[in-house]
Design a protein around this nucleic acid. Structure first.
Length: 275
DNA sequence: GGCTTTGTTTTATA
DNA sequence: GTATAAAACAAAGC
């Protein structure tokens, strides 16, 4: 499940190989994947002939910058993979879009469940790429401070779980890093945002930054099927303390890790370590 | 064949 | 308009 550290790992893996390449041909095998423009022919026509000028990331979105002010924005959702493959390699059955580049290189968008999306947009049209335009601050960025987190939590009656997963409030946190950050901060996921005191907010701020940067360092979490652009797994799953460990003993205190549903998502926490 | 999975959008309600 | 909760949606594996 690609969250910010997984997406960042993909971006780092494709930046060098892609920058400077020219799009020679585009194949769309599944029309549903293209979120914008509405016409698949227009998508292909607009993309063809463009040169890739850079690759960046915002939240869980991958931004491939193109000549003439165009941007190809990709969201992997649950099972999406952006893969670099030689043109000669047989096409996988879950490959939905193929971008043929010069030098015999393919950028292939694999998507088992067809949830992922690609948007081809001008720079000033980002509001057409789902929630891209309304993303909150990035963890690890100068904008994400203890004070900004305090503002986000203040007076909110909903659960911290729901707040951390809300991309408009903080960008890039998904279910795994959410549960892990709350464990490390010692905060129960069902607490309301407004109930957190100053110390807890400080601990949570630190835990989010720590868990996200560790996730990037270990090149993501390959819990089920995440791989980077070269098909390699990450290793942060070995560092998980609560996610996926429901019913198992807590690493810190030995209590049984609880698995419940909060904000409609499976949520893992230690009833003793988290208050 | 129902249940589970996740990120995001949409809808309903207060 | 805002905050919140819940539902909808995408599809496939088990």
């Amino acid at each position: 499940m690609p969250e910010m550290p997984e997406v960042e790992t993909v971006v780092r893996g494709i930046r060098e190989p892609l920058t400077g390449r020219k799009v020679e041909q585009v194949e769309v095998k599944e029309a549903m994947i293209i979120g914008y423009p509405d016409s698949i022919d227009e998508f292909k026509l607009e993309l063809k002939g463009k040169t890739i000028t850079g690759v960046s990331r915002r939240g869980k979105y991958i931004i491939i910058e193109l000549s003439q002010g165009k941007r190809l924005i990709t969201h992997l959702r649950m099972t999406g993979k952006l893969l670099l493959k030689p043109r000669t390699e047989p096409v996988h059955k879950h490959t939905r879009v193929i971008i043929h580049l010069d030098g015999g290189l393919d950028l292939r968008f694999n998507n088992m469940r067809k949830f992922g999306r690609m948007y081809l947009l001008d720079e000033d049209e980002s509001e057409k790429a789902g929630g891209f335009a309304t993303l909150g601050p990035e963890p690890l960025s100068p904008e994400f401070t203890v004070e900004s987190l305090a503002d986000i939590m203040a007076a909110r009656t909903t659960t911290v779980k729901a707040i951390l997963l809300n991309q408009q409030l903080i960008a890039g946190i998904g279910n795994i890093y959410c549960d892990e950050a709350l464990f490390r901060a010692g905060i129960r996921p069902d607490r309301s945002g407004g109930s957190l005191d100053k110390e807890e907010i400080k601990a949570l701020h630190q835990a989010i930054n720590k868990v996200i940067s560790a996730g990037i360092k270990f090149q993501g979490t390959s819990f089920s099927d995440y791989v980077n652009a070269l098909g390699e797994k990450g290793s942060f799953q070995e560092m998980l303390k609560v996610y996926g460990r429901g019913g198992e003993p807590c690493i810190e205190c030995g209590s049984i890790i609880a698995k419940v549903k909060i904000a409609g998502r499976s949520t893992h926490f230690c009833p003793k370590c988290q208050r």
